[in-house]
């Protein structure tokens, strides 16, 4: 990403010596209002819950215990694996994965198509792809909900046109959630793949064709392996926010299609009011995301080495 790599050429030194002073405000703000809160949240996940929100300062593993084990209503039975929350996490991973796949299937051809346009029209295509991203996520999700409702415009038109006999039921299904996630994060897939394809040397395709490769073989054997870093970056950029998404599952998925985001929200804003449990779930989500990012960073280091 631009401006994020500390490498690259000789570092300009006009303001050498002022670095720490200039970076200080960013450190203070992010340190106090993000890093410290995450540490406090981690602490809270090991505290005892107070009813109607808040915590009692008594260390316990109860929150994690509740997440993974079922000890019966009064907590005195033999612990069994508690599947409820694990399933919610599993469903989140599954939904985020399918949404990522959907983004890839549509995003790759789109990114390829844009990157092979003449330079001046490329920026216009890219602009068109990114504009919806800057429209309020809530409004986009509401729009999607409006469009795909059972008696929404889409079904009405299809019925009026005689293409279907009864409304297609999408809202409150997994598909609706995937569509919503797709709609939320598609540009994150298109942009890195676009950047990779733009750097792709088309002489490689010519060389492949010269060596009797068909278009399809060229795509799978040459192009995709070469632009793979862009594809992986895109997948991560879609998968990670999808995993913790709240609006799409909440508004499009309904009660049956609960995801991690909703589970966590419940603990703080909803009826559950179990802060340590919410903090623990957030910690588990954060760990999963960090693992994905660390594995990714490791792989990148290995590939660039």
């Amino acid at each position: 990403m631009a401006g994020l790599g500390p490498t690259g050429g000789r570092a300009a030194r006009t303001y050498a010596g002022r670095g720490p002073l200039l970076i200080l405000p960013a450190w203070v703000i992010i340190g106090i209002f993000l890093v410290l809160p995450i540490l406090i949240m981690a602490t809270y996940s090991f505290l005892t819950k107070e009813f109607r929100g808040g915590v009692i300062w008594e260390p316990t593993l109860a929150a994690y215990d509740q997440f993974f084990f079922d000890r019966g209503l009064f907590g005195d039975e033999q612990p069994k694996i508690e599947w409820t929350y694990i399933l919610i996490f599993w469903r989140s991973i599954w939904q985020a994965g399918l949404a990522t796949l959907l983004c890839l299937l549509i995003g790759f051809p789109t990114a390829w198509f844009i990157a092979t346009r003449p330079a001046h029209s490329r920026t216009v295509w890219l602009f068109l792809i990114t504009v919806p991203y800057w429209v309020n996520l809530l409004i986009r999700t509401i729009s999607m909900k409006f469009l795909i409702r059972d008696n929404g415009p889409m079904n009405q038109w299809l019925l009026n046109a005689g293409l279907i006999d009864e409304p297609i039921h999408i809202i409150n299904t997994n598909l609706a959630v995937q569509l919503g996630l797709f709609y939320s994060y598609l540009p994150f897939m298109v942009l890195p793949i676009y950047a990779a394809v733009e750097r792709y040397n088309f002489a490689l395709s010519e060389a492949a064709a010269d060596l009797y490769a068909s278009r399809w073989v060229t795509l799978t054997q040459v192009i995709i392996p070469v632009v793979k870093p862009g594809i992986i970056a895109g997948c991560i950029l879609v998968f990670v926010p999808s995993l913790g998404a709240f609006l799409a599952p909440d508004l499009l998925g309904g009660a049956k299609n609960f995801m991690i985001g909703s589970l966590i929200e419940e603990q703080f804003k909803g009826a559950a009011g179990n802060w340590p449990f919410g903090a623990a779930a957030a910690m588990i989500l954060l760990s999963m995301v960090l693992i994905v990012l660390i594995v990714y960073a490791r792989n990148q280091d290995r590939e660039s080495a």
């Binding site: 994020l4 500390p6 450190w27 209002f33 949240m41 913790g244 802060w275 919410g278 957030a282 995301v289």
Partner: peptide
């Protein structure tokens, strides 16, 4: 180099986690 990580941290932490952490804070 640590600062790069810190500045991009808000992009990496899932929003719902940031929300929870900030509320608790």
């Amino acid at each position: 180099s640590f600062s790069f990580g810190l500045i991009s941290l808000p992009l990496m932490v899932p929003e719902i986690v940031t929300a929870v952490a900030t509320l608790i804070f």
